[in-house]
Amino acid sequence: MAQDIQTSPKPAGISLETSQKSWAWIGVSPFFIFALLFLILPTLDLMIGAFQDAQGGFTLQNLANLNTPSIKSAYWISLKVSVASALTGALFGFLLAYAVVLGGLPQWLRPTLMTFSGVASNFAGLPLAFAFIATLGRVGLVTVLLREFAGFDLYRTGFNLLSFWGLTLTYLYFQIPLMILIITPALDGLKREWREASEILGASRLQYWRHVALPILWPSILGTTLLLFANAFGAVATAYALTGSSLNIVTILLYAQIRGDVLHDQNLGYALALGMILITGVSNGAYIWLRSRSERWLR
């Protein structure tokens, strides 16, 4: 303590007060330098690279090269999985959060669900894939039990864990909990008086949800759904471990490009990445636009 006081004499504090404006920037410069070096520049560099040929000249050829059936289908499957798992995850996450917060269930259920959601939303990547292979894979527990005891062969129905539906089902394992974690505080923010005020003004429960509760929750629901979308769209590990390279989604394609597993064309890789940035960027822009429309009443 005494040492601290010695090493930082008072005049330092005074000079900081007098030239506050110019010095204040110093305090946040490490953060901005870090963000620039490890977040902004690398992303920008890729975006520029997408418009360069191997010699560094400007070209649109990379983007044109994306126009192949396999790449288009990769984007398409990625989008499908991301949208499906985001919408389904948002819906079921909302229902579960609603059930626990407003459904009149026992008190202990809520902290249990919240803690579990904290765990499950972070239980992504490879272990999640392993868990679903062990459960719904060809020799997984549920598959085997269904065949042995119910005489029902899941894989005869066309189901395959290494497919659009399998991947979506697996992603839901972290999407639903993520929705629960984010939407529960928003549900808590619904004041009991709003429901009571609308009831006493003659509104039914449905009318209350349609005119009051959902409009209030809308920005949160929208924002979280977008987050779920980005979350699924950028996921690599789960899909990679689950499907190897048998299911062509764009992250796996990009992963293979970077690793040089397939024919190595760096600039095509940049274009792939640019496509991903554009998709998440556009969805974010759409979100910001929708939010500004629905949120005029917010501080």
Partner: peptide
Amino acid sequence: VVEFITLMPLVIPAIVIVFGYIRL
């Protein structure tokens, strides 16, 4: 501004960021 930057990693896929590192 700072909040926006801190949220960017949730939107830009990790694989894109690391690809940028490898290039840069």
